[in-house]
């Protein structure tokens, strides 16, 4: 569904993405992991077109996206920290996003998360007054609102209370079953273990591997993902 070839990106002298090649398929929940500063967010933002890579190509369903924009109607993106225009009400925010997407096909609006997070209660509040966690909920709801084929979630459970985190994880699993691609970064490995089907590992801008969780556990001969990954990380450092 998304394939990345020879992707290079550096900020100044710092090489952030160094020849990344990967293909992600529909129906996968790919957990993007790696130490801090390994290039996870840059990789995500490259797919979204926010960061312009120096070299390489990114294909969505076979179409080059580097200078395109329309493909983004198929992507829902939940950033690490939800930022909204501050003076706008939650309801207005949702309406505005619907309005902006109007000329794109919005046949099915998915308001399930709005219901589950009970966001209608805070419809009249200004986004600037919301707590970090509530903002994350709004952000998550917005991500799933347009029923996109690809979901990109950057640290989605950070700041969420356990109940909400659970709702979100269930939602991810549900979307996976609809043959959608979910790309997720998280440092909370237990969360990943619950939802992910694959793990993509980045280290210092280099793609180390993409493997299914089963394969990973088998190779490391560990029962828990947690330990399997720690084992890999230690191997890398050596």
């Amino acid at each position: 569904m998304i394939s990345v070839h020879n992707l290079h990106k550096s900020f100044g002298k710092l090489k952030v993405l160094d020849d990344v090649n990967v293909t992600l398929e529909a129906g996968q929940v790919v957990a993007l992991i790696g130490p801090n500063g390994s290039g996870k967010t840059t990789f995500i933002r490259s797919i979204l077109g926010m960061v312009k890579p120096e070299q390489g190509s990114i294909l969505y369903n076979g179409q080059e996206i580097l200078k395109a924009w329309k493909y983004r109607e198929n992507i829902g993106y939940m950033p690490q920290l939800a930022k909204f225009p501050e003076r706008i009400q939650v309801k207005e925010l949702l309406d505005m996003m619907k309005d902006i997407r109007k000329n794109n096909k919005v046949d099915n609006i998915d308001e399930e998360l709005i219901e589950l997070f009970d966001l209608k209660k805070i419809y009249q509040k200004r986004t600037g007054t919301l707590s970090g966690g509530t903002k994350q909920k709004v952000s998550a709801a917005l991500t799933f609102l347009f029923n996109p084929n690809v979901l990109i979630l950057d640290e989605p459970t950070t700041g969420l209370d356990p109940v909400s985190a659970e709702i979100l994880k269930n939602k991810i699993t549900k979307e996976q079953s609809k043959q959608k691609l979910v790309l997720i970064t998280s440092h909370i490995l237990s969360d990943i273990e619950e939802v992910a089907s694959h793990v993509m590992y980045l280290h210092e801008g280099k793609m180390q591997f993409v493997k299914s969780i089963e394969q990973l556990k088998m190779e490391t001969q560990e029962v828990s993902l947690n330990k399997a990954i720690v084992k890999i990380m230690q191997q890398e450092i050596k």
Binding site: L48, G49, M50, W69, K70, Y71, R72, E73, I75, Y77, P79, K83, F84, P85, E86, M97, I100, R101, N104
Partner: peptide, 16 residues
């Protein structure tokens, strides 16, 4: 001050 708004728009199907 509109940086957030722009970022929000950037992930949407909108031309830069």
């Amino acid at each position: 001050n509109s940086y957030e708004f722009m970022e929000l728009l950037l992930s949407q199907p909108v031309r830069r």
